[in-house]
Amino acid sequence: MSDQEFRDSDQVVASKDLLTTQVDGEVMAMSVDRGACYGLDPIGSRIWELVETPTTVGDLVTRLTSEYAVTPAQCAADVRALLAQLEAEGMIERE
C-alpha cells in the first residue's frame, strides 16, 4: 500500500490473490486473506477489466474518456480516487 498519488505513468494490475466473478455485469471480488468481499459498479467493473492486465493510469484515462461522456480531467480524478481505494484494500498493485 502506498500514500503516493497515482501518476499517469504508474502501471497498475489487479491482485492475483482475489477470487472474482461477474454478477449482473458487476464485478464481485473476495479476499480470503482479508476476509472481505467487494462489489464494483459498472464503471468500476470496467476499470477492473482493464487492470486485469498491467496498464498505466494514463492509458486507463484515455480509454475511459473514449468510452464514456466524461472530461479527461474528471475521468483522471475519478480513476485516481478509485485506484487509491483499490490499492488500500490490496485489490491492485503498482508495478
Rank of each mutant, 00 (worst) to 15 (best):
V57N: 02
G39K: 10
Y68A: 08
D33M: 12
P42C: 07
E67V: 02
G58A: 05
V23W: 01
I92L: 14
A88D: 13
T20C: 11
V61G: 00
F6C: 02
V51F: 04
M30L: 10
E89G: 05
Q74H: 10
A77R: 12
A76W: 00
E87S: 13
A36V: 08
G90R: 05
G90L: 03
D78F: 00
Q74L: 09
I47R: 05
E95T: 08
V57C: 07
T53C: 11
A36R: 13
P72T: 13
A84P: 01
L19K: 05
S9R: 06
T71S: 15
L60K: 03
M30N: 09
R46E: 09
G44A: 02
C37R: 13
Q85D: 13
T56N: 11
G35C: 13
E87Y: 04
F6V: 03
L50P: 08
V70K: 04
T56K: 14
L19D: 15
V12H: 13
T20H: 01
S15A: 15
A84K: 12
G90A: 08
T62R: 10
R94K: 12
V23M: 06
M30T: 09
T20G: 08
C37G: 14
T65G: 02
V57Y: 02
G58M: 13
A77I: 00
S9M: 03
W48L: 05
L50S: 10
S66K: 14
L19V: 10
D24I: 01
D10S: 04
L64Y: 03
W48N: 06
P72E: 15
R34F: 11
E95P: 05
G58F: 01
M28W: 13
D17W: 10
V23E: 09
T55C: 03
V13E: 12
A76C: 12
V27Y: 02
A76Q: 12
D33Y: 01
A36K: 06
E5R: 08
M91H: 14
G35A: 07
G39W: 01
S2W: 00
E89A: 06
E89K: 11
V51G: 10
D24S: 08
D33R: 11
L86I: 01
D24A: 04
A14M: 04
M1Q: 07
A76P: 00
T62S: 10
A84G: 11
Q4F: 04
R63V: 06
E52R: 14
G39F: 07
T65S: 02
A14E: 04
L86F: 09
T62I: 12
Q4P: 05
